[in-house]
Design a protein around this nucleic acid. Structure first.
Length: 434
RNA sequence: GUGCCCAUGGUGUAAUGGUUAACACUAGAGUUUGUGGAACUCUCAAUUCGGGUUCAACUCCCGAUGGGCACCCCA
């Protein structure tokens, strides 16, 4: 008794970690379908695939994303290896990509280089709707050009993916926070302004004043919101070149018919951003709760140098929150092409047939026909019932008689018609019905 | 990190503080070695954990853990 209890508590602990989950069945296909469609769109815009490690040296993120951001200060997963290295699970994909760019000397390729990548990221955050500790991002990045049309291109490609996934009435919140010249001037001005109102400022924002003053702009504190009404805004501090850049980006967006909304309080949580920053907020997120940000990004012209490049690497990127897309009510279930649901249900009957059944399955495999089977069962009725339940369109019935004649019955599950087909002709036959 | 709500088999639900925690679905075995969503029989399987109140706790109280949602932040 005591024993079973112990076993039970042990099993209780053997669950997936908080905020992390198993993805399977319909959800798996939803993800897979999205990734395939997103990749396809990327390829048509000229992006190439890359996959970077899930773990990176911790400094990549601390220097890249920046201390004073929530991601670094409280959300990053770090670990010390047995060899003593300090590694971190990536909380986002941009800094690793820049690291790869520098490490492989991609400055020597024709510029810019355009990459897409996807996979999981990790943040030690408190899980809630649309938020997991392990979550999936699809990222598009253009490295090595500061041209405004690159901003537009990456936005266009990203928005196309969202549209393909079923998002409607898309609009993008956009802002420019300047380059290092105007930005420093602006931050100085902003800091002065807040210092004047220091005693009205909530503690959290006072803290931010020291670490990351820009963040105060999108503070949710009521007090701060009032103060922000009269805060100097970034756009009016932009130097001529930044102003021009921003104006051009907006022109491109207009030309492409992309709805945008200039949000001067948009600054974003990662400190590597410069100039253009943007977010895409779910429009028809439906009744339950506040709309979620489904994508975000911006320009990060100085990240390269921070990560050790001799020259600046101007770059711009667009990240999509895949978990939020595929669970959205508007998500247009994209069927994966590479990984398919079973088309054929293989049924066998009798010892002779069971013996040969794996050979028949091999024929299907060579023909790339996904299938399911019930080799562990023996009677026909229950096997058909399973095929029915799994909603597989065709059943192959392989019994004693067929095994001797080297044939198989192909049964259409929806209209219950069936044909007997020689095994040698099976592929041809299946091709026709597909 | 803060606040609100929740916690019974794999799933969904039941059980005025009082029998052996019930029911349905699912899963497995069988009736059944040749044609379907079936029926029947049997089987596996639960009160999150730890304290307390009580003669008696799934039920009441406290705490922990887990989950959901909101804030914060972000994808």
């Amino acid at each position: 008794m005591n024993n079973t209890k112990k076993t039970k508590t042990a099993i209780k602990d053997m669950t997936s970690p908080k905020g992390m989950r198993d993805i399977m069945n319909e959800e798996y296909y939803n993800f897979q379908g999205f990734f395939e469609k997103a990749q396809e769109v990327c390829i048509y815009y000229g992006f190439k695939p890359i996959e970077t490690p899930v773990l990176e040296n911790e400094e990549i993120f601390t220097t890249g994303i920046g201390e004073g951001t929530d991601i670094i200060d409280k959300e990053i997963y770090t670990l010390k290896t047995k060899g003593g290295d300090h590694l971190a699970l990536r909380p986002e994909h941009t800094a690793p990509l820049m690291r790869a760019y520098i490490e492989h000397g991609m400055q020597n390729m024709p510029q810019p280089v355009m990459f897409y990548q996807y996979g999981s990221s990790f943040r030690h955050d408190k899980p809630q709707r649309g938020r997991y500790r392990q979550f999936y991002q699809f990222d598009l990045d253009i490295l090595g050009s500061e041209k405004s049309i690159m901003d537009a291109l990456v936005i266009k490609a990203g928005m196309s993916i969202l549209e393909e996934a079923g998002a409607e009435n898309l609009s993008i919140d956009i802002n420019s926070i300047g380059d290092k010249e105007c930005r420093n001037g602006y931050i100085k001005e902003l800091t002065n302004y807040y210092k004047k109102h220091l005693n009205q400022l909530p503690a959290i924002d006072r803290e931010r004043l020291k670490t990351n003053p820009l963040r105060i702009l999108d503070s949710k504190e009521e007090k701060t919101k009032e103060i922000n009404e009269h805060a100097p805004d970034a756009v009016s501090f932009l130097c001529p070149s930044c102003k021009k850049h921003f104006k051009e980006v907006l022109e491109y967006l207009e030309e492409m018919g992309i709805q945008y909304n200039i949000n001067k309080n948009l600054v974003r949580g990662l400190s590597y951003y410069t100039r253009t920053v943007f977010e895409v907020i779910e429009q028809n997120g439906s009744e339950d709760g506040t709309p979620l940000t489904i994508a975000g990004g911006g320009r990060y012209d100085y990240l390269g140098k921070q990560l050790g490049s001799k020259k600046d690497v101007p770059a711009v990127g667009f990240s999509i929150g895949v978990d939020r897309i595929v669970s959205a009510p508007w998500y247009k279930k994209l069927a994966p092409r590479i990984i398919k649901k079973p088309k054929i249900y293989f049924i066998q009957l009798g010892g002779e047939a069971k013996l040969k059944s794996l050979n028949v399955i091999e024929i299907l495999r060579k023909a790339h026909i996904p299938m399911a089977q019930s080799l562990s069962k023996d009677n026909l009725g229950s096997q058909l019932a399973i095929a029915e339940k799994l909603q597989v369109p065709y059943a192959l019935i392989f019994g004693q008689k067929e095994a001797l004649e080297n044939s198989v019955i192909v049964r259409n599950m929806s209209n219950r018609s069936q044909d007997t087909v020689k095994l040698t002709k099976l592929l041809e036959y299946l091709k026709e019905i597909k």
